[in-house]
Computed example of a mutant assay.
Amino acid sequence: MSNEALESLSRAGVSVWLDDLSRERLRSGNLAELMSTHSVVGVTSNPTIFDKALSEGHAYDEQVQDLVARGVSVDEAVRMLTGYDIRWAADLMRPVYDSTDRVDGRVSLEVDPRLARDTERTVAEAKALWWLVDRPNVMIKIPATVEGLPAITQVLGHGISVNVTLIFSLDRYRQVMDAFMEGMELARANGHDLSRIQSVASFFVSRVDTEIDKRLDTIGTDEALALKGKAAIANARLAYEAHEQAFDTKEWRALAELGAQPQRPLWASTGVKDPDLDDTLYVTQLVARDTVNTMPQATLDAVADHGVIEGNTVLGTYQSAREDFAALEGAGINLTDVFGVLEDEGVQKFVDSWDSLLKGVSNKLDSLS
């Protein structure tokens, strides 16, 4: 039986995606069960998720032994191991992909995060991963760095669906939407069927509150402390307003007439870090049509257990969100610096996870050789 809270979220226009993937989750039937009971219609992955999955148990040992026999490099082994899981999940999600006219049923795989500042190599890696997995419902994740923006355009232009990750600021989000529009124009020029290309823009949520609340604690005034826990929701709501504006233009309508689907906002990093905040906050307060909320298991369980979905909680909040931003700046928060720090930290965290993943795979190759 499907969970009522998560069903309500889906009816409100929010696609529920799981922010986790592992061989064990696939083998045990857990992902299939969540599709049935928790309205899960998509999956996201990242280097941290795969590093954790490969470090636990023996689910990957048989494939690792085959890779040892073939004498592949560590980098190639990582591609083979992660690609296998992505392919499996994509096949499991294929009925959702078909029944939603290719909107959902999506599974995301990230390019090597060490390439985040290299446009040309990011494009090449994205094309290689798309070819390797060879499933129409896969999305390739590309970070929204300055160097990632032209890569997003080029990859879309090749007819490849893209999940843009590590978006923190409104300015960068607008640049991402511009890159998407340019990519769809390029795809049209290259003769691709625009209706088969999907994109989401992963706007990170909880990390914004974590960084800003730390600074508000340092400031320490009553006015500053009263603003804790408000920045991330305000930021995401203003992002949705920017989305509405970007996809209400004659340029977009011309692409839509050719079958193009809008790039949906995706709320990422929705696990609440501060125990003083409601653990469903970044779900219940970001309900809006044509969005995605990708949740770690703990957040998914929390929403299923006690989440209260009360319809759209984003429309009509834009002025209040702007006032919260003005108050943060008035309290001494340098938002430009905050978003720059978060992007740099985000890239580095994924690079560190990738290095850990490489080390773990290397150790497995050695131990099973």
Rank of each mutant, 00 (worst) to 15 (best):
N3H: 07
E7D: 07
R11M: 10
G13E: 11
G13Y: 10
S28W: 09
L31D: 02
E33P: 08
L34R: 15
T44W: 06
T48H: 12
T48F: 09
I49C: 07
K52C: 03
E62A: 15
Q63K: 05
Q63V: 03
V64Q: 01
V64D: 03
V64Y: 00
D66H: 15
V68I: 10
A69P: 02
R70M: 05
V72G: 03
V72Q: 09
E76S: 11
D85L: 03
D85E: 14
I86P: 02
W88T: 09
D91C: 04
D91A: 14
L92S: 06
L92Y: 07
R94W: 13
V96W: 05
S99M: 06
S99P: 03
D101M: 02
V103Q: 13
V103C: 00
V107A: 08
S108N: 04
L109P: 00
L109N: 04
R114M: 01
L115C: 00
R117I: 02
D118V: 01
E120Y: 11
E125S: 05
K127R: 14
L129F: 02
L132N: 04
L132A: 07
P136W: 06
N137S: 03
V138P: 08
I140H: 10
P143M: 08
V146Y: 08
E147C: 06
E147F: 04
G148V: 11
L149N: 13
V155F: 04
G157T: 12
H158M: 12
F168D: 06
L170M: 00
R172E: 00
R174D: 13
M177Y: 13
A187C: 01
A189T: 10
N190Q: 15
L194Q: 05
S199V: 10
A201F: 13
S202K: 09
T210S: 15
T210D: 15
E211Q: 14
I212L: 06
D213S: 06
K214S: 13
R215E: 10
R215C: 01
L216N: 00
D217T: 14
G220F: 12
D222H: 02
L225H: 07
G229R: 10
G229I: 06
A232C: 10
N235M: 11
A236W: 08
A242G: 07
Q245D: 14
F247S: 07
T249P: 09
A256H: 14
G259Y: 09
G259L: 03
Q261F: 13
P262V: 13
P262W: 03
R264W: 00
L266T: 12
W267R: 04
T270W: 13
G271Y: 05
D278G: 11
T280I: 06
T284A: 01
L286K: 11
L286D: 07
A288H: 01
N293G: 05
T299N: 05
A304Y: 11
A304N: 02
A304W: 00
V314S: 10
Y318S: 05
S320C: 02
E323M: 12
F325Y: 15
A326S: 11
E329L: 01
D337P: 03
V338F: 12
G340T: 12
L342D: 01
E343W: 02
E343V: 06
G346L: 09
V347P: 06
F350L: 14
D352W: 06
D352R: 13
D355N: 14
D355M: 09
L357S: 13
S362E: 12
S367I: 01
S367H: 04
